Simulated assay, not measured.
Amino acid sequence: MTTDQFFTQLWNDYITITPQAEAVRQLFVEHGEEVINDHVAFRTFSNTPVDLSHLQPVIETLGYEAAGEYRFEQKKLNAKSFRHQTEESAPKIFISELQIHELSEPAQKILNGLTAQIPGNLTLDPSIFWHGRLWNMPTSAEYSLLREESEYAAWLSTIGIRVNHFTVSIEKLKCYNDIGAVNTLLASQGFPLNSVGGEIKGSPEMLLEQSSTMADKITLTFQDNKEETVPSCFYEFAKRYPDADGKLFQGFIEGNADKIFESTNAM
């Protein structure tokens, strides 16, 4: 599978539960812009057949290599970023992993029960990244307990393994290459923005500015047949700046990403 095929499949899956993303893309196109993707992100659970150590080899088959490691203490997450070895224009990939063993015993019990349903002989290939849940839906009570402790855990328990967000590369836009202008455009069209820590996360001095919409909503039926509207996925916007050597910064800033995670919080 080529990288183009991989990201096309991801996008097609993404917009089925994130229609705002296609609406935002069309908005930029209508303003004469070509939308180029900076990176995508995925979420997963530790110590499972789909943890980071199992997903990394799949990413590597697409020509990627690890480029950075990150820790989010408060959210109990480890993460890695990946860059393509030969295709400089290929979007970056960011995978975070919830450390289940760091949660409370009730939360661990729920998540261990869900992840125990993942087949041990699961064959991993690029399609795992649009597979969705590999377990049954939790009950509404289990979901509520998870959400009180970890919005990340609650989101992953319902949405599963699929792309969490795409990211517009602002520095590659022709007219809207200022993050403030992007946010103003989005707000004028009624797209809710993540305001945690301010609508703009980061700064030119940090070589990276980011913002994002709040996640779309999707109605799901829980295992106890109760329906609830829960967050799905969101759209991110990133502007990268050149470093002292004139090279565009390609990494991620933990303080920014920590706030971007909250784009899937229930409002």
Score class of each variant (00 low, 15 high):
A215W: 05
T219Y: 00
H39Y: 08
G132E: 12
S104H: 11
F237H: 11
H101K: 11
N164V: 09
P57H: 06
A266C: 09
V163L: 07
V163T: 14
N136S: 13
Q210M: 04
E65Q: 10
P192A: 12
P91R: 06
F222K: 07
L52D: 04
I17Y: 01
N225S: 13
E142H: 00
E151L: 04
K92W: 03
T8V: 10
A107P: 01
G63P: 05
E60S: 09
V35W: 00
K201R: 08
L52P: 01
A154S: 10
A153L: 12
L98S: 08
L27H: 07
V58Y: 08
Q108E: 14
C175Y: 04
I161R: 09
Q189L: 05
S188L: 12
N256F: 02
Q223A: 15
I59D: 03
Y235Q: 13
T139M: 01
V50W: 04
P49W: 06
T229S: 15
F261I: 13
F252Y: 06
T123D: 08
F129A: 13
Q108V: 13
F249G: 13
G160T: 12
E33I: 10
N47K: 14
N112F: 08
E30N: 15
K109A: 15
L248V: 13
P231H: 11
S96T: 14
F261G: 13
A244R: 07
E73C: 02
Q26F: 02
S150N: 12
T139L: 02
F252C: 04
I200M: 08
L248P: 01
S104R: 05
D13V: 07
D125N: 11
L52Y: 02
F222Y: 09
M214L: 15
H39G: 10
T264Q: 06
V35I: 10
L77N: 04
L145W: 01
I110W: 02
E33M: 09
F129Y: 14
I17K: 02
A153Y: 06
N136Y: 03
